[in-house]
Computed example of a mutant assay.
Amino acid sequence: MTGIPEGIVPIALDAMGGDHGPSVTVPAALQAIGAGGVAVALVGDAEAIQAELDKYDTPAKQLVQVVPAEGVVEEGESPARAFRAKPNASIFVSAGAVKMGKAAGFVSMGSTGASIAAATVVYGTLDGIDRGALGGPVVGYAPNTVIIDLGTNVDTKPGLLVDFAALGNVMSKLIYKNENPRVALLSVGSEEGKGNALVKETTDLLNSTDLNFIGNIEPNDLPEGKAEVVLCDGFVGNVILKLTEGLGDVIVSHVKEVLGETDESEKLSKEIFERMNILEAFGGGPLLGVNGLAIVGHGASGVNAVANAIGTAKFVVETGLIEAQQAELDRIRAEVN
């Protein structure tokens, strides 16, 4: 992106990603620009994007650039095959804009697998990391608790969980301003020695670091914020994420059923939804362990969530998280070895 005023952070937005495409991503980009501090490259079908842009008369359009791309990676489509068959798809062009220095990061509500593949292949990973990891707060009652991994690495070894601990530690410090984050392993019991082989072997490794490792916590400890960084493999993390979201939906429906459609029930339902779907407030979370910024959001996101994701991208750029990760990984690995 060229001609951007000083102090404005350029962000590439996969305009075709998500369930709604340009009908949501275009107004979200304009909303984010209106909030200040960002310019947005809308990447995708140029005609569809421009047709949506033409509906709006706002000064924010001065900080919008339309970047043509061809094709979309659909949910369920193999990311590896898609990269070979659709190298000019919107998600890959978005990542390419960051790699070429035209944007500080990209945001996508499209296929999570495609976003991870784009960031991994185009950016490359940090030394010793094969695949990036998604991590962030899931339970609204503990908004400063980062759970990692949330679904990227479903099969995990102890050494990788230690890497997650390093990444989560630096993320907690820089983004959530926790000076000495408590690090814990998610397990079936809080007592030392409880858990499977992965938990036990990882415990031995974490005990050799200078991280503020407090041992095991159980899932029912998560809402109480007993740790700022919680480690688990991606299979478990994704189950926690989806269970929390699902509970939020059914509880909201139950509240409305019991209290009826009143102002009180609407207010309570909104609060419950926000507590159980905390990612909505951020719009998405950064993919950790890759050499660039990728904010991955939910496909069903509306305008506010996508705008929030763009704001999150700006904030993460300003924290220096991407640059700080490798140094923290190297430091923790040196202690383990």
Rank of each mutant, 00 (worst) to 15 (best):
V72W: 00
N178G: 00
A300N: 09
A41Y: 05
V162T: 05
R131Q: 06
G195R: 08
M100T: 06
G44V: 01
F164R: 02
G283S: 09
T2A: 13
E218W: 11
K194P: 09
S253T: 11
E261F: 00
I129M: 10
G21F: 05
L13V: 07
A12H: 00
E47P: 03
I240Q: 07
K99A: 09
G302M: 02
V73L: 11
N88K: 15
G128N: 02
E323R: 14
V122M: 13
E201M: 13
T120E: 15
N196Y: 09
Q325V: 07
V183I: 08
V146K: 05
A133P: 08
N196C: 06
A117T: 10
E245M: 01
I295S: 07
S78E: 12
F282N: 15
I332M: 15
F164W: 06
G140S: 13
F213G: 13
S108A: 06
L222Y: 04
L160M: 15
E224F: 11
P219E: 14
Y56G: 05
L185P: 02
V40C: 03
N212F: 12
G302S: 04
I240Y: 09
N178L: 10
I129R: 08
F235W: 13
L321N: 09
L287C: 04
K99N: 06
L174A: 12
S269D: 03
L222E: 09
V250W: 14
A69M: 08
T152C: 06
G248M: 12
L321T: 03
K242H: 12
L53G: 12
G237Y: 12
V122F: 11
Q62P: 00
L161W: 13
V336I: 10
G17R: 04
E47F: 10
G159E: 15
G193A: 08
V9Y: 00
P87M: 12
G110N: 12
K102P: 04
T125W: 04
L161G: 02
I147E: 09
A334H: 05
E228F: 07
K226D: 03
K86C: 10
M276K: 08
R84V: 08
A104V: 04
A118W: 04
Y176G: 07
A48H: 01
I91V: 15
K173I: 02
A32V: 02
A95F: 06
I278C: 03
N196H: 10
A227E: 08
E280T: 10
L279F: 00
G101P: 13
L205Y: 06
I147H: 11
G248A: 10
I148L: 11
V183T: 09
N196I: 08
R81S: 12
G140N: 10
A227R: 04
G3P: 07
N337R: 15
N207M: 11
V121P: 01
A82T: 06
G105L: 10
S94I: 09
V303C: 00
L53Q: 11
A97F: 05
A184V: 07
L126G: 05
Q31W: 01
G237F: 07
V317P: 02
S172A: 14
A294E: 03
A227M: 07
V24P: 11
T112H: 08
S190L: 00
E47R: 14
L268N: 04
I129V: 15
G17Y: 05
S90C: 13
L126N: 07
V146S: 06
F106V: 05
P286Y: 11
